[in-house]
Every structure is written in C-alpha cells, then in structure tokens.
C-alpha cells in the first residue's frame, strides 16, 4: 500500500476514542509505549493463521482503527501463549489486552453467537456455571455443527479413541457446594448484564 492510500484509509476510519478505550483496559495501559520492533509478531507461533500480526494490531489501535481491530481474526486466534509478552522490550501484556478486546468485540456485536470461538467462550462459561467444573463431552456436543457429516464422523472416531483409553468421563462432575458457584455467577454475571442493559 502506498503511504497516501494508507493515510486516506486512516483518516476515514480513525476513532481516537478507541485508543483511549484500549488504554483503560488491563494490559492496554502502556500500549502507546510500543516501538513497533516486531519482536511479538516474529515470535508468535500462531501468526501464520492471523489476518493481522500482533504488532499490526497494536499500530491499528494507535491509529484508532476500531472496527478493523474488533473484527480481526487475530484477537480470536491468539493462544495466550505469552511468547510475545515475555520478549516484548516495552513490557506490553499482549495476550491480556487481546482477551479484553474479545470482550469488547462480543459486547458490540462484532462476534456473532454462531462463530465458533465466541460460542466456545459462551458454552464454556455455561458449563462451569452448571457444574462448577468442566464437563468435556457436553462442551463438545454444544459446539458440534450437527449438519456437517464429516465433522460428526471425525468426532465419533476421536471419541472412540478417547473412550477406549478411559479418557471420556460421561458422568458430569459433581460438587456438593455448587451453590457457591451459582452465587459467584449471580453476583458477577447477572449484575454485569443488568448494568449493560441499563
């Protein structure tokens, strides 16, 4: 892209309030310290699958490119492996603000419920609310696209392999103090949702 073209795009999409919004997030406080050295992108083991590299995402945040950042695949592909943050010479906690960006993307409708990653987050949270602990078969069932025969077949093969090795626990986990978990969720999730709907 020529610099002129780039400038035009930037001036069209720039939303300075987004930069400020990210600076208020945990992990985003020092995002302006980034020197664009590229260490994060060069170290990232999942870069090959992302549309923008971590370094580009940061520049896009500086430039206030809100919609592009929130609809990028990068924020969902980041595996929170902490290679980048461990090496970043400016001490930026990249996976931490990626997490926070997911939250903003969900709240603002950038991540639809049908997309697998947001759906994973939602289903995971629901299961923990229900049992207090993970129940893997139920998570898998919630996420499976039942119309995709190939996927159904592959999942059946995997399930059989795991079952033969005693790795499938069909019975849901049980906690006697499940009421604790319900209370934590009521305290935090519902309150948050109430506030959001106001």
């Amino acid at each position: 892209m020529k610099p002129k073209q780039f400038q035009k795009i930037v001036s069209e999409v720039r939303d300075q309030s987004f930069t400020e919004e990210v600076q208020k997030l945990r992990g985003g406080e020092n995002i302006l310290d980034c020197i664009q050295c590229g260490v994060c992108s060069g170290s990232c083991p999942a870069r090959f699958a992302m549309d923008f590299s971590p370094m580009q995402i940061i520049k896009m945040i500086h430039l206030g490119m809100r919609d592009q950042v929130l609809s990028s695949s990068t924020i969902w592909i980041c595996a929170s492996c902490y290679t980048c943050a461990t090496r970043c010479p400016r001490g930026i906690d990249i996976p931490m603000f990626m997490s926070a960006l997911k939250n903003i993307a969900i709240k603002n409708g950038f991540a639809s419920d049908d997309e697998i990653k947001p759906k994973f987050h939602k289903s995971f949270t629901e299961i923990i609310r229900k049992y207090g602990r993970m129940h893997e078969p139920e998570l898998k069932m919630k996420l499976m696209r039942k119309s995709d025969l190939r996927e159904l077949y592959q999942n059946a093969v995997l399930a059989f392999r795991l079952w033969r090795k005693g790795k499938v626990k069909l019975l849901a986990p049980r906690m006697d103090q499940l009421s604790h978990i319900s209370e934590i969720f009521e305290d935090l999730l519902e309150k948050q949702e109430e506030e959001a709907s106001k």
């Binding site: 929170s80 997490s99 987050h121 978990i181 948050q192």
Partner: peptide
C-alpha cells in the same frame, strides 16, 4: 475439598475477568 474450575486462561476471563478471578 470442593475445588472448582480454576477460572480459565481466557474462556471465562475474556467474558468477565472478575468472575474468573473470583473462581
């Protein structure tokens, strides 16, 4: 006794950090 989900690296955390930290 009666331990619960650690809080998850990201699945719950991204949804609601305080919820994850409370777990």
């Amino acid at each position: 006794p009666e331990w619960n989900c650690c809080g998850s690296i990201d699945a719950i955390y991204a949804h609601n950090p305080v919820l994850s930290i409370s777990l």
